[in-house]
C-alpha cells in the first residue's frame, strides 16, 4: 500500500446561516439568500476540493464537545435530521453520511499511542453535530466522499488554552500518522470561526444583510491580522499570537480544530489561499485553503 498523504487543509467554518442562505433541498428552512460572500468563498473551495479527488474528508467540530477524551465517529452509515439548537429557525437538515471507519480507528489508536484518551463512537442512533454537518455540506454538498468525524475535547476550556491546544497538537500528529499508515489521500477540515463575539438578537428577517457586519473593531482587526499572516505563510507567527487572539477576539479556534489541522500538516510555512471572508451575526469567518499537493509540485 502506498503511503497516505494529506492533500490539503481547509479552514471551513460552520455557521448554519450559509446552508440556510443556499437553500439546498436537504434543509427544511427557506431563505431569500444572504451571506453571499462566504457562500461564494465556499464555491471556490468546492472547486478546489473537487480537483484534489480525496479518498476521505476529516472534520474536527467544536459542537461535538466531549469531556472524556477525543472521540471519533465509528459507525459506517449515519443519518438523520440535524436541527441546530441555537438556530432551529434556519437549520433543519436531513443528512446521510458514510464514515471511513478504518481510518477513524487508526486515528483513535494513534492518539492513544500518544497518551491521549481516545474513543470510538459506535452507537448507530448517534446524532451527528450541526458543526460537522454544516462544514461538510458547504465543502462537498454531494456527500459522496467518506468522512472521519472528530469531537472537540473540552480541555482548552476545562484545563487551559495552552494545555488544551497541546492535546490538539498531539491529536493532529496522530491523525497524520494514521493517514500515512492507511494509505489515504485525505483532506482536513477545521470547522472554526475566527473572532466569535456575536450579536444577541437576530433581525426579523435573518438574511437582512443590512444588519450584518463585524461585531466590533477589535475582532475585525484581529481577523485581518491573522488572515494576513496566514496569507503570507507566517505560520510560526500565527501560532505565537494564537493565545492572545483567542483571548481578545473570543476566537472559536480555541476549541482546537485549527491547531489539530496545522499539527497534522506539520505547520507548513506556505501561503494560505483566502477564498473569502464574511461575518455571520457579527462573528468573523474565513474560508481558506492550504494546498499541500500543489505546494509540493
Amino acid at each position: 500500500m502506498p503511503k497516505g498523504e494529506i492533500l490539503a487543509g481547509f479552514l471551513a467554518p460552520h455557521p448554519p446561516h450559509l446552508v440556510y442562505g443556499e437553500n439546498p433541498p436537504q434543509n427544511e428552512a427557506r431563505s431569500e439568500g444572504g451571506w453571499e460572500q462566504l457562500r461564494w468563498a465556499y464555491e471556490r473551495a468546492r472547486k478546489s476540493l473537487d480537483e484534489l479527488k480525496p479518498d476521505v474528508l476529516l472534520v474536527h467540530s467544536p459542537h461535538w464537545m466531549t469531556q472524556l477524551g477525543h472521540h471519533f465517529l465509528g459507525v459506517k452509515k449515519l443519518s438523520g435530521k440535524s436541527v441546530d439548537p441555537i438556530f432551529p429557525n434556519l437549520f433543519r437538515y436531513s443528512f446521510a453520511l458514510e464514515v471511513d471507519v478504518a481510518l477513524a480507528e487508526a486515528c483513535c489508536a494513534k492518539a492513544r499511542d500518544k497518551g491521549l484518551v481516545a474513543k470510538m463512537m459506535r452507537n448507530p442512533n448517534f446524532r451527528v453535530d450541526y458543526g460537522t454537518i454544516t462544514t461538510l455540506h458547504m465543502i462537498r454538498p454531494q456527500w459522496d466522499i467518506p468522512v472521519v468525524g472528530i469531537s472537540a475535547n473540552n480541555s482548552p476550556y476545562y484545563l487551559s488554552t495552552q494545555q488544551g491546544l497541546d492535546e490538539m497538537d498531539l491529536l493532529g500528529k496522530a491523525t497524520r500518522e494514521a493517514i500515512e499508515a492507511t494509505g489515504r489521500r485525505a483532506v482536513l477540515l477545521a470547522s472554526n470561526t475566527l473572532s466569535h463575539f456575536h450579536f444577541h438578537e437576530e433581525p426579523a428577517l435573518p438574511e437582512d444583510m443590512s444588519r450584518e457586519h463585524p461585531f466590533d473593531m477589535t475582532g475585525y482587526r484581529w481577523d485581518m491580522r491573522m488572515i494576513e499572516l496566514l496569507r503570507k505563510g507566517k505560520t510560526d507567527e500565527v501560532f505565537r499570537v494564537l493565545p492572545q487572539f483567542i483571548d481578545e477576539a473570543f476566537a472559536e479556534v480555541k476549541s482546537g480544530a485549527f491547531t489539530w489541522m496545522f499539527a497534522a500538516m506539520g505547520y507548513p510555512q506556505i501561503p494560505g489561499e483566502l477564498h473569502g471572508y464574511g461575518t455571520v451575526i457579527g462573528t468573523g469567518n474565513a474560508v481558506m485553503e492550504w494546498n499541500l499537493a500543489k505546494a509540493a509540485a
Binding site: 466531549t66 439548537p85 448517534f126 446524532r127 456575536h198 438578537e201
Partner: peptide
C-alpha cells in the same frame, strides 16, 4: 441558548436522544 431565552412550544416532544458523551 445564546441568542434569546428559548421556550419549548412544541405540543409534544418525542424521539430518541443519544448523549454526546
Amino acid at each position: 441558548a445564546v441568542l434569546d431565552e428559548l421556550w419549548q412550544t412544541r405540543a409534544r416532544v418525542a424521539g430518541v436522544h443519544v448523549d454526546e458523551n
